[in-house]
């Protein structure tokens, strides 16, 4: 599943939920947490459940941000939504491996109770505290259900007691730390939304930065940012061409019985091949670049 962009949609806004699949995002995050006031938690939960039950969202993947494990809502969220098989549960304020395991265990319990297939829904811890950043690798490798990490910079900067800026110097460490932790655990990692919905240039820069740091994709709170994020996280034509050249070089090397081969003076090793394969698979999924392979 390709997840370049993830779009937050308030769980209590029927008009947005109805149009979830039309907004261009690879995945939507139905939000039961910050976007929903305590008085509306139950209504939003029912609305999101019914959207998942009745709406055909086409190829758009569904993620649900439930309430954190220190609230009275999170178990009810999982009870209501797990039967409708969201791809991921986004677990806010995950500060430790234990937080992730509490959610993981309860999800397994619900799956067993309802006779659901185990592990269909993954877990994506939302890292938005200083402790969460420091525990990132432990969280990322907490259980096989943890499929990705997600950086939440707004709450994190509050916890760090610093100001959130557009340039994002204050979250540089957290970004790099999360990417390293997630990649070390062999899972994906997603960048925090860019929150100025009127800064059309800023979103480009912020998305490019995230891609260059190694993030798999980026979240958004505005549908206006989705296309930019998709564009930045899609392979470019030159990247695709290079990937095909790598695969062609490998094919030739095998034909000639060579163990190692260079392309443009650079040795092609396993990580380069793996990256080329990922690029080609993404390009094919997006229908861009060469169609001859």
């Amino acid at each position: 599943m390709m997840r370049r962009s993830m779009l937050f949609l308030p769980g209590n806004n029927p008009n947005m939920l109805i149009n979830a699949s039309c907004l261009g995002a690879d995945a939507v995050i139905f939000d039961l947490e910050d976007a929903v006031s305590p008085a509306e938690k139950d209504a939003a939960r029912i609305l999101v459940r019914n959207t998942m039950r009745y709406m055909d969202l086409g190829g758009c993947e569904v993620i649900v941000r439930i309430n954190s494990v220190d609230t009275p809502y999170w178990k009810m969220d999982i009870d209501a939504l797990l039967p409708h098989k969201p791809a991921l549960i986004l677990l806010p304020k995950t500060a430790s491996k234990e937080d992730a395991l509490i959610a993981d265990n309860y999800m397994s319990e619900v799956e067993e109770r309802l006779g659901l297939e185990t592990g269909v829904t993954g877990l994506m811890p939302l890292i938005e505290t200083a402790a969460g950043v420091e525990n990132a690798y432990a969280i990322a490798s907490a259980s096989p259900r943890v499929k990705a990490l997600f950086l939440g910079a707004e709450d994190l900067t509050a916890d760090l007691q610093c100001k959130r800026t557009k340039e994002g110097r204050e979250i540089e460490y957290a970004r790099c730390r999360l990417v390293v932790a997630a990649r070390a655990a062999g899972i994906d990692v997603y960048d925090t939304p860019f929150t100025d919905v009127n800064d059309d240039e800023g979103i480009w820069e912020d998305a490019r930065l995230a891609k260059n740091l190694g993030f798999t994709g980026k979240a958004s709170i505005s549908p206006r940012h989705v296309e930019v994020i998709n564009s930045v996280f899609s392979p470019t034509v030159s990247e695709i061409d290079y990937a095909y050249e790598v695969m062609e070089a490998i094919r030739r090397a095998k034909e000639q019985g060579k163990g190692a081969i260079a392309l443009y003076g650079k040795m092609i090793d396993a990580p380069i091949v793996a990256r080329a394969e990922r690029t080609i698979s993404m390009a094919q999924a997006l229908g861009i670049g060469r169609g001859d392979n």
């Binding site: 008009n15 039309c22 907004l23 549908p223 206006r224």
Partner: peptide
């Protein structure tokens, strides 16, 4: 309106 913008794009 995000839906309007999708249509416009």
């Amino acid at each position: 309106d995000p839906v309007g913008l999708v249509m416009a794009a």
